[in-house]
Design a protein around this nucleic acid. Structure first.
Lengths: 134, 134
DNA sequence: GCTTGACTTAGAGCGCACTCTAAGTTGTAG
DNA sequence: CTACAACTTAGAGTGCGCTCTAAGTCAAGC
């Protein structure tokens, strides 16, 4: 009997908790992003709290645009335990830089869009003014 | 004879100037994102400075994650001229909000990653300290 | 005993945004 | 005259990240 077996989630529950679909959870396991999770006697998956926590962190990587390939690398390191912390740190720091650069680029491009928004706003105001004078 | 014909660019030159590939430029025209550009006597495309400027702005939308469908909407409005400015303004403002929200989300997710980076850094420092003591 | 529903698998399909291919035309340089 | 480079088209192919389907198993409730 596994300790805390009651805290284990079905795939449905894990999907709800992580915001992924059951399809995606199975897909992630298939491609090796997740190591095979535990199974109940009937062969159904049971997600341990640990599994859920891992998925939730992987979601942060995903949400910041990390490609799945790289997530697989990171996940593999997670499963290796403490000896891989230095390498994990390296990956995360590299990713931080990529995302920060990306945000910077977004903001630069947004500035051009803001410029155009101002231009359009001005044009509309002038238009409006003309109507009031004419 | 078109005025300033010399300022017109071949597809190759337009590609270089806009950072898109010639394939992509033709693709954009095919799907209606770009209205058909002018042609030389031999049927080759000639990009007017105006065309290039339009593409450059569309690139800003692209770079901020706007889907091509929406870019098509915006481009169509651009081709309509001044009557469409109010609608264009509406679209751009909506897009600004989407992107700002997206950046905010990115930063929230980055914060979680940063937390883990600190955690790992601490773990490594402790490890290192132990080595020095032991 | 039968239906219902949650699960299982392998594998097909999808939407997006390109990206490339094949076959053909045209213009210039040697 | 020939070779080559730049262009043209329609349409096929690619990579990513899912998303869905079909066929089957299993346990619980009527």
């Amino acid at each position: 009997m596994t300790p805390h077996e009651n805290e284990h989630l079905t795939i449905q529950q894990a999907a709800e908790k992580t915001g992924l679909s059951v399809h995606t959870l199975r897909y992630y396991e298939r491609i090796g992003l997740l190591q095979p999770v535990g199974r109940a006697a009937n062969g159904h998956r049971r997600f341990a709290p640990e599994d859920v926590r891992r998925i939730e962190f992987l979601n942060k990587l995903r949400a910041t645009g990390m490609p799945i390939r790289q997530m697989c690398e990171f996940a593999a390191l997670m499963y290796q335990g403490d000896e891989s912390i230095a390498e994990r740190l390296r990956l995360l720091k590299a990713h931080q830089e990529v995302v920060n650069q990306y945000i910077e680029d977004l903001q630069k491009n947004l500035a051009v869009i803001a410029y155009k928004v101002n231009l359009y706003t001005q044009l509309l105001e002038d238009e409006h003014a003309k109507t009031h004078i004419g």
